[in-house]
Amino acid sequence: MSAELWPYIVLMVVGFLPNEAWRLVGLVLARGLNEESQIVLWSRAVATAILAGVVAKLIVFASGSLATIPLGVRVGAVMVGFLAFLLIRRSPLAGVLVGEAVLLIGGYFFAP
């Protein structure tokens, strides 16, 4: 097996299949779970917590160019952006833009 193919095999086995399986389950099961059923509520909570964990890791243990921005600036930018989202009519765009602005300004002035 050539080394160049390896990332694509990983993509299919670790990314595509574990995700696609649920779409097929939904296709095959004609009738099934109620959206309010306990297993659905639990799985939503787990999926939310996993994604939140990934988000936290991407910010706190940043890699690449994001790692050149000091931790305090990254965390501050997320907090200000989130606050902007809550205050400005719960607009995701406002939150993202304000967070990005804080990151750019903070990164410019506090770059190591």
Binding site: W22, R23, V25, R44, A47
Partner: peptide, 14 residues
């Protein structure tokens, strides 16, 4: 982790 994040697709397809 991918499969746990994908469970939500199942009730959506249904």
């Amino acid at each position: 982790a991918v499969t746990l994040s994908g469970i939500r697709l199942f009730p959506m397809v249904m």
